[in-house]
Design a protein around this nucleic acid. Structure first.
Length: 146
DNA sequence: GCCAACGTTGGC
DNA sequence: GCCAACGTTGGC
Protein backbone atom coordinates (compact mmCIF):
# COMPACT_ATOMS: atom_id res chain seq x y z
CA UNK A 1 0.00 0.00 0.00
CA UNK A 2 1.49 3.29 -1.12
CA UNK A 3 1.34 6.46 0.89
CA UNK A 4 3.00 9.78 0.37
CA UNK A 5 5.04 10.35 3.54
CA UNK A 6 4.19 14.06 3.41
CA UNK A 7 0.60 12.92 3.89
CA UNK A 8 0.90 9.82 6.11
CA UNK A 9 4.32 8.32 6.77
CA UNK A 10 5.18 5.09 8.56
CA UNK A 11 6.23 7.19 11.57
CA UNK A 12 2.88 8.96 11.50
CA UNK A 13 1.16 5.59 11.64
CA UNK A 14 3.38 4.38 14.50
CA UNK A 15 2.52 7.48 16.50
CA UNK A 16 -1.24 7.29 16.10
CA UNK A 17 -3.59 6.30 18.88
CA UNK A 18 -3.94 2.51 18.68
CA UNK A 19 -1.43 2.72 15.79
CA UNK A 20 -4.31 2.44 13.34
CA UNK A 21 -5.53 4.54 10.46
CA UNK A 22 -8.31 4.45 7.89
CA UNK A 23 -6.80 4.06 4.42
CA UNK A 24 -8.90 6.95 3.13
CA UNK A 25 -8.56 8.74 -0.16
CA UNK A 26 -8.26 5.89 -2.65
CA UNK A 27 -10.11 7.04 -5.78
CA UNK A 28 -9.27 4.32 -8.21
CA UNK A 29 -11.68 1.46 -8.77
CA UNK A 30 -9.10 -1.31 -9.01
CA UNK A 31 -7.40 -0.23 -5.80
CA UNK A 32 -10.77 0.15 -4.12
CA UNK A 33 -11.74 -3.36 -5.18
CA UNK A 34 -8.61 -4.84 -3.64
CA UNK A 35 -9.60 -3.32 -0.30
CA UNK A 36 -13.30 -4.06 -0.60
CA UNK A 37 -13.16 -7.56 -2.04
CA UNK A 38 -9.79 -9.09 -1.22
CA UNK A 39 -8.50 -7.81 2.09
CA UNK A 40 -9.17 -9.76 5.27
CA UNK A 41 -8.48 -8.91 8.87
CA UNK A 42 -4.96 -9.94 9.73
CA UNK A 43 -3.63 -9.64 6.18
CA UNK A 44 -0.23 -8.05 6.28
CA UNK A 45 0.84 -5.31 3.91
CA UNK A 46 4.04 -3.56 2.99
CA UNK A 47 3.90 0.16 3.72
CA UNK A 48 5.46 1.94 0.74
CA UNK A 49 6.52 5.57 0.60
CA UNK A 50 5.80 7.10 -2.81
CA UNK A 51 6.27 10.50 -4.44
CA UNK A 52 9.17 11.34 -2.17
CA UNK A 53 12.94 11.51 -2.06
CA UNK A 54 13.46 7.86 -1.14
CA UNK A 55 10.62 5.77 -2.54
CA UNK A 56 10.39 2.22 -1.25
CA UNK A 57 9.14 -0.14 1.41
CA UNK A 58 9.56 1.24 4.91
CA UNK A 59 7.43 -0.94 7.13
CA UNK A 60 4.76 -3.55 7.70
CA UNK A 61 1.15 -3.07 8.73
CA UNK A 62 -1.88 -5.31 8.93
CA UNK A 63 -5.53 -5.00 8.04
CA UNK A 64 -7.45 -4.52 11.29
CA UNK A 65 -10.90 -3.53 10.00
CA UNK A 66 -12.78 -4.77 6.96
CA UNK A 67 -13.72 -2.24 4.31
CA UNK A 68 -16.48 0.26 4.94
CA UNK A 69 -17.46 3.51 3.20
CA UNK A 70 -14.63 6.07 3.10
CA UNK A 71 -15.98 8.98 5.14
CA UNK A 72 -14.02 11.59 3.17
CA UNK A 73 -16.23 11.05 0.11
CA UNK A 74 -19.12 12.71 1.97
CA UNK A 75 -17.09 15.64 3.32
CA UNK A 76 -17.45 18.66 1.05
CA UNK A 77 -14.41 20.25 2.69
CA UNK A 78 -12.20 17.27 1.85
CA UNK A 79 -10.10 17.07 -1.27
CA UNK A 80 -11.47 13.56 -1.55
CA UNK A 81 -15.09 14.72 -1.64
CA UNK A 82 -17.16 12.95 -4.30
CA UNK A 83 -20.42 14.74 -5.12
CA UNK A 84 -21.77 11.62 -6.79
CA UNK A 85 -21.45 9.51 -3.65
CA UNK A 86 -24.32 9.20 -1.18
CA UNK A 87 -24.60 7.34 2.08
CA UNK A 88 -27.18 5.09 0.40
CA UNK A 89 -24.83 4.47 -2.50
CA UNK A 90 -21.28 5.03 -1.36
CA UNK A 91 -18.71 4.78 -4.10
CA UNK A 92 -15.45 4.52 -2.15
CA UNK A 93 -14.40 2.11 0.54
CA UNK A 94 -11.40 1.70 2.78
CA UNK A 95 -9.98 -0.73 5.30
CA UNK A 96 -8.18 0.27 8.48
CA UNK A 97 -4.59 -0.83 9.00
CA UNK A 98 -2.50 -1.15 12.14
CA UNK A 99 1.22 -0.55 12.48
CA UNK A 100 3.29 -3.69 12.91
CA UNK A 101 6.88 -2.60 12.47
CA UNK A 102 9.28 -0.34 10.70
CA UNK A 103 11.83 -1.93 8.39
CA UNK A 104 14.97 -0.64 6.80
CA UNK A 105 14.28 1.24 3.61
CA UNK A 106 14.04 -1.19 0.74
CA UNK A 107 14.25 1.22 -2.14
CA UNK A 108 12.49 0.83 -5.44
CA UNK A 109 15.94 0.56 -6.98
CA UNK A 110 16.78 -2.41 -4.76
CA UNK A 111 13.40 -4.00 -5.45
CA UNK A 112 13.94 -3.59 -9.20
CA UNK A 113 17.42 -5.09 -8.97
CA UNK A 114 16.05 -8.31 -7.48
CA UNK A 115 15.15 -10.69 -10.29
CA UNK A 116 12.85 -12.72 -8.03
CA UNK A 117 10.64 -9.65 -7.71
CA UNK A 118 10.47 -8.57 -11.31
CA UNK A 119 6.84 -9.70 -11.66
CA UNK A 120 5.56 -7.48 -8.88
CA UNK A 121 2.84 -5.12 -10.15
CA UNK A 122 4.34 -2.18 -8.31
CA UNK A 123 7.54 -2.50 -10.34
CA UNK A 124 5.90 -2.64 -13.75
CA UNK A 125 6.41 0.25 -16.10
CA UNK A 126 3.59 2.72 -15.87
CA UNK A 127 2.05 1.18 -12.79
CA UNK A 128 0.08 3.78 -10.89
CA UNK A 129 -2.08 1.67 -8.61
CA UNK A 130 -1.68 2.69 -5.00
CA UNK A 131 -2.67 -0.77 -3.79
CA UNK A 132 -1.46 -3.97 -5.40
CA UNK A 133 -1.44 -7.59 -4.26
CA UNK A 134 1.80 -9.22 -3.15
CA UNK A 135 2.43 -12.81 -4.17
CA UNK A 136 3.35 -15.01 -1.15
CA UNK A 137 6.64 -15.97 -2.80
CA UNK A 138 7.52 -12.32 -3.31
CA UNK A 139 6.45 -11.52 0.24
CA UNK A 140 8.84 -14.14 1.61
CA UNK A 141 11.60 -12.91 -0.67
CA UNK A 142 11.28 -9.36 0.62
CA UNK A 143 11.04 -10.47 4.25
CA UNK A 144 14.19 -12.47 3.59
CA UNK A 145 16.26 -9.47 2.53
CA UNK A 146 15.17 -7.23 5.39
C1' DG B 1 9.95 20.23 -13.69
C1' DC B 2 9.59 16.54 -17.15
C1' DC B 3 7.06 13.14 -19.19
C1' DA B 4 5.42 8.25 -19.98
C1' DA B 5 1.63 5.75 -18.87
C1' DC B 6 -2.77 5.18 -17.72
C1' DG B 7 -7.69 6.27 -16.06
C1' DT B 8 -11.69 9.18 -16.64
C1' DT B 9 -14.79 12.15 -18.99
C1' DG B 10 -18.06 13.48 -22.22
C1' DG B 11 -19.48 14.60 -26.99
C1' DC B 12 -20.98 12.17 -30.75
C1' DG C 1 -19.71 2.19 -27.67
C1' DC C 2 -15.91 4.92 -29.56
C1' DC C 3 -12.19 7.79 -28.77
C1' DA C 4 -9.94 12.41 -28.28
C1' DA C 5 -8.93 15.35 -24.72
C1' DC C 6 -7.73 15.93 -20.34
C1' DG C 7 -6.09 14.95 -15.57
C1' DT C 8 -3.25 12.29 -12.44
C1' DT C 9 0.51 9.51 -10.86
C1' DG C 10 5.07 8.98 -9.59
C1' DG C 11 9.90 7.92 -10.72
C1' DC C 12 13.57 10.39 -12.32
Amino acid sequence: MKSEPSDVSIDDLAKRVNKTIAWYGVRNYQARNFMRDQMCIGDQVFFYHSSCKQPGIVGIAEVCKLSYPDTTQFDSDSKYFDPKATSERPRWFNVDVRFISKTRLISIKELRSNLDLKGMPILQKGNRLSITPVDPVEWKCIIGIM
